[in-house]
Structure formats: C-alpha cells, structure tokens
Amino acid sequence: MLKLIDVQTCYGNIRSLKGVSLTVAEGEIVSLIGANGAGKTTTLMSISGIVAASSGQIIFNQQRIERTDPDKIVAAGISQVPEGRRIFPGMSVLENLEMGAFLREDSRKTREDMEYVFDLFPILNKRRHQAGGTLSGGEQQMLAISRALMARPKLLLLDEPSLGLSPLLTNQIFEMIKKINTEQHMTIFLVEQNAYMALKLSHRGYVMENGSIILEGKAAALLTDSNVKKAYLGI
C-alpha cells in the first residue's frame, strides 16, 4: 500500500533522512522505532508532503506522491496524527472533528463516522462543545486520532501517540489503535519511542538510527533481537 524507496530529505544543509526504504501492506500495523532525532517524524512529514523529499520515491497505491501537495495526499487517503497532537486550541471538539472531515462532501456518512468516534471515545461526546485547548493530554490524543479518522483514511500515520501520557492512558490509546485496525481494517504506520509498546501492537517493525533504517523484521522477532533489547527496550 505504501512504499518508500531510498527517500532522502534535507532541512537546509542537514540531511535528516539518508535513504529510507520501507513498505506498509494493507491491513498491517507497522511501527517505526528509534531514538529522539533519528528522523522518524521527518519520515512521516515527508509522506504527508509537508517537507519535500529531495530524492527517492514515495508510492501510495501505485501512485508517486513525493511531489504531491499535502491536501492532495490527504484526499488520496493518508491522514496523520502529528507529534504533540496539534489540536486547534480555539476550536471546539466538534469543530476539530469537522476540520478532520474537511475534504469530505458526504455529510450523512460523515455524521455516522462522528458517531463511531464518539463510540470509541465517549468522553469526546461529553466535551463536544468545549474548546480543544482545555482538554487534558489524554483527551487531546483521543481527539487527534478521532480527527484523523474523520477523513476516512486508507492509511493512518501516528506520531508518538504515547507522548506525555501515563502508562494507563497509553495502554488505553494503544488498545484503541488495535481496535481501529481490526474493526475498520485500517492500515496503520506508527512512530514511537516507546519501542516495547509499539512492537507489542504491531505486525512488523523498522528500527531507525541517524536517518537510516538499520533493522527490520517481524515485530515478535524484533522484540527478542538482542540489539533491539539492549538499545531500545532497556533489557
């Protein structure tokens, strides 16, 4: 479904992605793990078209998208929940969700999807008229995921959904990610620093270091890999 071939991305003179290649197949949860500054967020921002890849190919459903504008990429079916959630602070929960459905014209189905996310996260329904900026961290993460789902994407990109959340809330969010994957057959590409949680949830995983993929494989295999254990799992 998604394929990156030797993608390089530069910020000014700094090359932050040094030839990244990876694939995500339909229905999978794939995680990209690695330390701070390894280039995980840049990978997602390159896929979403926010930062332009300087070379290489990004292919989504047989279409090259590395030169495509961000709004066209969303229209093609890729939604991202960025790092730090980026809820519109001055807009209500409802308006944030409506913004998620910005490109959709089918208002009846949009309303059904809103019911679905309210089912997933009932707390959002309770807070629907509250300003996004007044929600707690966990609620904001739920809203951010729901907002991305409102676009009815084919591929969901998640950047550090566990960031700043308590272990209990992290568990809850990850369970929901699993549920979205199985119930909606949503393909999910997940970026995480919390390698253990991410690999437990995923089918496959990639390990990133200094802008390159250094290891890939089945999530279960990575969990027992001695290098991964030492570097990322702290075992």
């Binding site: 961000p70 709004d71 939604s79 991202q80 960025p82 980026r86 913004m99 490109l103 676009a151």
Partner: peptide, 12 residues
C-alpha cells in the same frame, strides 16, 4: 491557529 495541522487535514 496551526497552519501545518490545517495542511495535514487537507486544507489548501
């Protein structure tokens, strides 16, 4: 409020 986020939601 957040230009990049608006772009990520498909706003031109």
């Amino acid at each position: 409020q957040d230009r990049t986020m608006a772009m990520l939601l498909g706003v031109n």
